[in-house]
Design a protein around this nucleic acid. Sequence first.
DNA 1: TCTAAATGACTGACCGCCCAGTCACCACCC
DNA 2: GGGTGGTGACTGGGCGGTCAGTCATTTAGA
Lengths: 221, 221
Amino acid sequence: MPKDTLDKIKPAKREKLLSEAAKLFAQRGFNQADMAELAGRAGVAKGSLYNYFESKEELYLYVCRDGLNRSRKAVYGGLDPDWDVYRQLEHVFTQGAAFARKHPEYLILYLNVSSAGLEPFAEKLSLEVEKYTADHLKAVLARDIKRGLVRPDLLVNQSAFWINSLYIVFLASLVSRHFQIRMREYLEITGRLTKKVVEQEIRRTVELIGRVLAPPGPHIS
Amino acid sequence: MPKDTLDKIKPAKREKLLSEAAKLFAQRGFNQADMAELAGRAGVAKGSLYNYFESKEELYLYVCRDGLNRSRKAVYGGLDPDWDVYRQLEHVFTQGAAFARKHPEYLILYLNVSSAGLEPFAEKLSLEVEKYTADHLKAVLARDIKRGLVRPDLLVNQSAFWINSLYIVFLASLVSRHFQIRMREYLEITGRLTKKVVEQEIRRTVELIGRVLAPPGPHIS
DNA sequence: TCTAAATGACTGACCGCCCAGTCACCACCC
DNA sequence: GGGTGGTGACTGGGCGGTCAGTCATTTAGA
């Protein structure tokens, strides 16, 4: 969707441009991000941006999709599809949190498609963002029911939905000011949000999900 | 925080103004909402808006806080504090959904404080938005543990956190285009989002929460 | 190998539009 | 006629997108 001029520039320059664009859009939001400022930060001229992309909208869409690919690689990259759902969830939560720490800008871009006035972007992006995770999670759940690792009376779609809901809110709490304030209020965290605290919260959440998924039977505690 | 001129105008006029402001801010977002258009919709002159409020920011804050009060009244109004947590949750989810149907604009305003660039508003609003619900939910959980209605080993803060997370995502799915698309993908809803479907989803979610909270013991099914 | 022409990526001043906030004026009421 | 609330044209700044011109690199011809 970008012009083919974009492919022809030096990779380092392209990388810098996309990275600065993601950061600026995440900082200011789509409408408040200024193309002139982006050009300045990326070290190119404003006119050049329009050599690479037709419009601000197109640039934004490209940056979002690029971020989606990066996050997918980071989260699902080291995942063995044969792992049971419990291990996979732990992996996804941990890798997701690590990615959110390293590149909060992409998470913020994701959160932003639900902002007022950005519905046109939601129309184009939401499905491609959600479909992969939804399909994957449902498939693993269905498989592990067959394997006897998950309780057979579980509603697969609905479970995938609420599990992913917890995941989203958890990641949002790491990158968005509002969700940070909210999480600190609920969990009564007063100090800094250290890696330790985050890891503990992951453990507890994955454990909680595990308790709901586990087939009934004698406990091993 | 608004000027005292606001108190002096006819209640119907004030009502109309606040209602149109909420709708416009929800439709376009804070930055894209045009004060002249708001004046037009509300049937007043642009200058009048500045007779009532110091600035656009102040108007926005006022509208958000007003919406918060309305939603609180709608959701917690008919709630008997003596009900057990299960009944209270069912009430809150149901009333929340009803309010979201009737006044999606206020829910959208809530979602929007987590948008990029609106951190100054989050700084002012998030805590007052979340504190009430957080305190209430924690208190009821703690009380019902004492009453023996909730499993005693439950982590109150963490449970309040994930229960409210499900609540937020559920309501978001009723009002935000992105979350709507996401929910339909997960739950494989193809038709319209009828009241029936919503009620079923509420039932399932509250049931799920109930299963986690319930003390261990013989099942009655 | 040297030079000249052709190419196209790059640039930033500029245009036109938008919009928050102002203010001089108006209308109504006591 | 003084005072209060209401009004909308106006201002100043900001920003998306343009385009005429620059210049480094490549190609071609001798």
